[in-house]
Amino acid sequence: MIPDEQAPLPTPRRGRLTRTAGWLGVAFGAVHCVVAPLDIRSRWSQVASEGWWNTFTLDTPATLAEFERSETFWLTLGSFGAPVLALGCFILWSERHHQRVPGWLGWLLLSWGVPFVIVLPASPGWVIPLVGALVVLGDRRPRRTATPRPTRPASLAQA
């Protein structure tokens, strides 16, 4: 694989930021995928007893039971827990293989996560913009310092 010429050289700080972003995504996704189903396991028992095929619907719930059924789906299978877990795994894999995690991915997470926590600040959703910010900071390019131009030897300067 040919390395990207414009990719910054890995530094311990950048690697640490990226690695932290990955582990936060893994932790958030894993906890959500495990805790949410356990929290509503009685509803899952009801779903299992009624059968799995076509159990959930996207219709607007009209009764409390329909709302609870819809909530069961959106808190577990339809949640962002699994995708955030997958993203965290990808970030960790990329960092371990010395691949740059692009800053635009962090900006996307920030553009999703900031409005999320503005409308619902009392939630664990703060992990999303935090992961995004760490990815952006981990991808920052080093500042270019002015390097002196090589001078010509005196013997060539007079020619």
Rank of each mutant, 00 (worst) to 15 (best):
123 S>T: 15
59 D>T: 08
46 Q>L: 13
49 S>N: 07
79 S>Q: 04
64 L>F: 12
98 H>W: 06
64 L>N: 03
69 R>E: 07
77 L>W: 14
113 G>L: 08
71 E>N: 11
92 L>Y: 01
105 L>M: 13
120 L>N: 10
100 R>H: 14
117 V>D: 02
110 L>C: 15
105 L>R: 00
58 L>R: 08
87 L>G: 03
102 P>Y: 10
101 V>G: 03
131 V>C: 11
84 V>E: 02
109 L>Q: 01
107 W>C: 03
109 L>S: 01
76 T>A: 12
50 E>V: 08
111 S>E: 06
46 Q>T: 15
45 S>H: 11
68 E>C: 01
86 A>E: 07
99 Q>G: 02
136 V>M: 08
126 W>C: 13
101 V>H: 02
98 H>R: 14
95 E>A: 15
72 T>A: 12
76 T>F: 04
93 W>T: 07
135 V>D: 00
111 S>G: 15
74 W>G: 03
53 W>T: 14
96 R>Y: 10
99 Q>M: 12
49 S>M: 11
108 L>G: 02
73 F>W: 15
140 R>T: 13
98 H>N: 11
103 G>S: 07
109 L>R: 01
74 W>A: 07
67 F>T: 14
101 V>L: 05
61 P>A: 08
58 L>I: 12
73 F>G: 03
78 G>K: 08
103 G>Y: 06
137 L>T: 02
81 G>L: 12
58 L>H: 05
114 V>T: 09
56 F>M: 09
93 W>L: 14
137 L>H: 01
48 A>W: 13
74 W>L: 14
81 G>E: 09
132 G>A: 05
122 A>N: 05
95 E>M: 04
107 W>M: 06
102 P>M: 08
104 W>A: 09
135 V>R: 00
109 L>K: 01
100 R>L: 15
108 L>E: 00
110 L>I: 15
121 P>Q: 07
130 L>K: 00
68 E>T: 06
56 F>K: 04
76 T>N: 11
57 T>E: 10
103 G>C: 08
54 N>H: 14
65 A>H: 12
138 G>N: 07
59 D>V: 03
85 L>V: 11
78 G>T: 13
70 S>P: 01
46 Q>Y: 08
48 A>S: 11
137 L>N: 01
104 W>H: 06
68 E>H: 07
70 S>M: 12
